[in-house]
Design a protein around this nucleic acid. Structure first.
Length: 443
RNA sequence: GGGGGUGUAGCUCAGUUGGCAGAGCAAUGGCUUUUUAAGCCAUGGGCCGACAGUUCGAAUCUGUCCACCCUUACCA
């Protein structure tokens, strides 16, 4: 509703500044959407109320007022207050009004103060929320069913990562916090929910830096009777939809680098991508050839690492940072993808793709492996890597294999890292800028 | 983990060659009836990140540790 001069209003908010001139005073109040100036006069309020306001109200307090709208000499819309009540008292001072909080550590530990003093901080979390709601709208409107699967799991799986572990007292049982939602969502595909998704936290017991927080948010989407090509189309549509909803266009800028999402995303075969940025074809390379190349590029690596880890290393070092505009990398080596279905026309390769944007892995998807015999062999291979010292290799999940043995339809699966997408869409350098309360060492 | 930087009042920051611990904002007490980073006068506020050392004397020099940031390595 548009209000004009002389209209009566009742409003409430937090006091952000206060200027007392003796027998009159100005304050500014704000709430989550707006700010406005209030004017208090001795002759309007009377001595008792005016003095009480002047003495007792501080910056940070919440106030409720009634009054009439007017414009000051400088044209600022202001409420001439005729009555007020205190809604809540602040007994600690707010940060400095002009600079706000500057120390990075303080900004994170007192996020509520930072977002109060700095609208840009709050705006990022509003955008993040918009992003997730656009994602949900898209998936719902494409008939996907949102589900919630366990976070506390007797066995973890679905990704290569080290887990957090905990203990349930009543059952006297060791439990893990999930590292991915994958294996439970596939059980739902087996159970006849043909299109499902879950948006939720995953937990990985690994290092913290500007790209990683121990708990992070991902969406996983599964669709029966689909393959990775269908998931690629879905991913592209979803990403474009979200970007358009959040930023208002398909043009995106991250850390001063522009990307245009209005064209179809490029698709590059895994080995072709490596060939393009290394100048060499490694698809049939021996371990020695890989080692020689890594040394020639001065890339650090573990001497005992298996061949597929060396390949992964080359990909990460030589290819990823070049993938600035959204690009699908397709058809990965089988050893890197123990849950993906083999390609029937290409040896040692699976039907998998990853989507990169600004050099970051945004999405990972494949045609799901639905053959229980093959799946058992893949798990056994992973257990072998684990025995040879890879703590992130996957663990054999008997109950998941039992589920597969009951028959799983062909299906496509997709995972998207929501935090990284939020980083791009809010132009945030660090993941901690878009996780409201990132994990910090205790003070 | 390696390399570089930072840490001083509630907040934002100065602090000279090693010589009494400072300013602005915020707070408290005054003056001030159209200000908007309001203004003026006054007051209170500190384990100078922690510990040890050098020195007559350390915020300042040295060492160790802690936290954060940047960079680099690993997982998304």
């Amino acid at each position: 509703m548009l209000l004009g001069r002389g209209d009566t209003v009742r409003i409430a908010g937090r006091i952000m500044s206060k200027r007392v001139h003796g027998k009159s005073a100005f304050i500014n109040i704000q709430d989550s959407t707006d700010k406005i100036q209030l004017y208090f006069r001795y002759d309007v309020l009377g001595e008792k109320k005016y003095i009480f306001f002047k003495k007792m109200f501080d910056i940070g307090d919440f106030i409720n007022v009634s009054g009439t709208l007017f414009r000051t000499h400088t044209g600022e819309e202001t409420v001439n207050v005729d009555d007020y009540t205190l809604l809540a008292k602040s007994v600690r001072p707010l940060p400095e009004k002009w600079h706000g909080l500057a120390d990075e550590d303080t900004k994170l530990r007192y996020r509520y103060l930072d977002m109060l003093m700095n609208p840009a901080v709050k705006e990022k979390f509003v955008k993040r929320a918009k992003m997730i709601s656009a994602m949900r709208d898209f998936l719902d409107s494409h008939s996907f069913l949102e589900v919630e699967t366990p976070i506390l799991q007797p066995l973890y799986g679905g990704a290569n990562a080290r887990p957090f572990s905990t203990f349930h007292n009543a059952l006297e049982m060791k439990l893990f916090l999930r590292i991915a939602t994958e294996l439970y969502l596939k059980r739902l595909i087996i159970g006849g929910l043909d299109k499902v998704y879950e948006i939720g936290k995953n937990f990985r017991n690994e290092g913290i830096d500007r790209m990683h927080n121990p708990e992070f948010t991902a969406v996983e989407v599964y669709q029966a009777y689909a393959n990775y090509n269908n998931m690629m189309e879905l991913t592209e549509k979803l990403l474009k939809h979200i970007t358009e909803q959040v930023t208002g266009s398909l043009q995106c800028s991250y850390q001063s680098v522009a990307t245009d999402l209005s064209h179809p995303f490029e698709r590059i075969h895994f080995w072709e991508a490596i060939a393009r940025w290394t100048g060499e074809d490694f698809s049939d390379a021996t371990r020695d050839e890989l080692l020689k190349y890594l040394k020639s590029q001065k890339i650090e690596f573990d001497n005992n690492a298996p061949k597929h880890t060396l390949i992964d290393e080359i990909f990460k070092e030589m290819v990823e940072s070049n993938l600035i505009t959204p690009t699908f990398i397709t058809d990965y080596p089988i050893e890197l993808s123990p849950l993906a279905k083999k390609k029937h026309d290409e040896k040692n390769t699976v039907e998998r793709f990853e989507l990169f944007w600004y050099g970051m892995e945004i999405a990972n998807a494949f045609t799901e492996l639905n053959d229980p015999i093959d799946q058992r062999q893949r798990f056994e291979q992973q257990m072998d890597y684990r025995a040879k010292g890879d703590p992130e290799a996957q663990v054999l999940d008997e109950e998941f294999i039992t589920a597969l043995e009951h028959g799983m339809p062909p299906a496509g699966g997709l995972g998207i890292g929501i935090d990284r997408m939020a980083m791009i869409l809010t132009d945030s350098y660090s993941i901690r800028d878009i996780i409201i309360f990132p994990l910090l060492r205790p003070k």
